[in-house]
Simulated assay, not measured.
Amino acid sequence: MPDFSLNYFIGSNSSRGYVSFFQSNFGRLKTVVRLSGYPSIIVSDIVSNLCSAARDSGCHAQLIHNCLDNSMEGVIIPEKNAGVINFPFYSEEEYPVAAILNDDNLSQTHVCLASAGRHFAAAREIHDKWEQIYIANMDFDAANRLAAQTIEKVVGGKTLGKKGAQIHRYFGAATVNGAYDYIDNLTEDLEKRYFIKGRPGTGKSTFLKKIAEYATAAGFNTEIYHCAFDPNSLDMVILRELSVALFDSTSPHEYFPSRPDDEVIDIYKAAVTDKTDEKYRTEITAIMVDYKAEIGKATKQLARAKRYYDDVQRIFLSKLSAEALGIAEERIRDTVFGS
């Protein structure tokens, strides 16, 4: 009986606004149940019950988390080619519904999320200055050689007799409680993990993109996990058919080898001018202070957004009928697993 579930996010309140990979994850499914504005406590119960039903049916479950507070947002049952997803009323993907709700708490939720986005965008501009220090001291030929060597090590001449596919997600999010990730969960059943070390601007994302494109072209299904702060960048690639993960193991998701087969790939050592950290220590320290200040302001706005939206949810909870909710849950289960 399956006892392993994947946990991840498909949306992020990022420096580029709210960016969702809903289509990448749900567009391929035969059956999709879309919920609109269900309170998170209800969604959690629905997802938990579906997971229990999945285990009883010998199926796996993929749990999707809300990027604001890490609550349950949905579930995918791969063996049933089906999924359930809840769109909060503040979600842009359900804006036509939210737009007709004349609710001050909901309006304030939007205001706070927009403010958080501006602070994240300001942090990205500061981060760009941080990157420029290392870009100016990069040996790009050395970085390209390291990528080629890693591709040879990970994929080599292996190919599969099928067309490779990519799916896009996030392994973490900037939540009201700060950065949170599911790297351990997503990689726990893999035999090999590569910890990519480096600095801002040292090409970790480019490194991962090259591996993802090569593996996909070779016929492998490729899980691509984007940076929750900047979705244009990649933070992890998983090739489950090869039982391999490669991920950006730097702050705010810094990990260190803990298994015998874990391996570090240090782009800074391989491709950056020696002692760059020391040479620019003063500038880097100042940049880090400004960057963390903007991230802190964004996190406070996310916390305010959650408080307002919690009030919205409390109002809706008070109006819910337990009997009607039970009927709805039964219909959802029947739709996913078949009546």
Rank of each mutant, 00 (worst) to 15 (best):
Q62P: 04
C227K: 05
V19R: 14
H226K: 11
R199L: 06
Y225M: 08
H119P: 00
V272M: 08
L320Q: 13
T250I: 13
H168W: 06
G37I: 07
T282N: 03
Y182F: 14
K209T: 13
I238L: 13
F9V: 05
V19M: 13
R124V: 02
V154A: 02
A142C: 11
T222S: 09
Q149H: 11
L208C: 09
V289D: 11
C67G: 00
K192T: 12
I100N: 10
I224T: 09
A82C: 08
V47K: 15
A53I: 08
H226S: 12
F207T: 01
L320P: 00
D141A: 09
I133A: 02
G157H: 09
D45P: 05
L35I: 10
G58I: 01
I332H: 04
S258F: 05
C227W: 06
S36V: 14
A114V: 07
R145N: 13
T31L: 15
V312H: 01
P96N: 08
I238T: 09
T285I: 07
L63I: 15
N25Q: 12
L68T: 00
A98W: 05
K162V: 13
E329D: 03
R118K: 13
R304T: 02
G198C: 10
T206I: 14
R28V: 15
I77W: 08
E73C: 02
L208T: 06
T206A: 15
P78G: 10
Y95R: 15
N66R: 02
S15F: 08
E323A: 08
E330W: 03
A98V: 01
F207V: 10
L113F: 05
P200C: 05
A116S: 15
E330S: 10
F247R: 05
A324Q: 07
N49F: 10
S40M: 07
V75I: 15
D261Q: 10
L186W: 07
H168V: 08
A293K: 14
I284V: 03
K158H: 14
V19A: 09
V19E: 15
M138C: 14
R55C: 03
S91P: 03
K292H: 15
L35E: 03
G157C: 09
R199Y: 07
A328D: 04
L239E: 11
D128C: 01
R124P: 03
E125I: 05
R193T: 13
K306V: 01
D310T: 13
H168Y: 12
V312Q: 03
I135H: 11
G219Q: 03
E323T: 07
D262G: 04
C112H: 12
K204W: 04
A173T: 01
V111F: 00
G326H: 05
V111Y: 04
V155R: 03
G198T: 14
L160E: 14
A324C: 07
A215S: 07
Y38K: 07
P252E: 06
A303F: 00
K297N: 12
R304L: 14
A136I: 01
A122V: 09
F120T: 08
Q23L: 06
D277P: 04
E191N: 11
W130I: 00
S14E: 09
A215F: 09
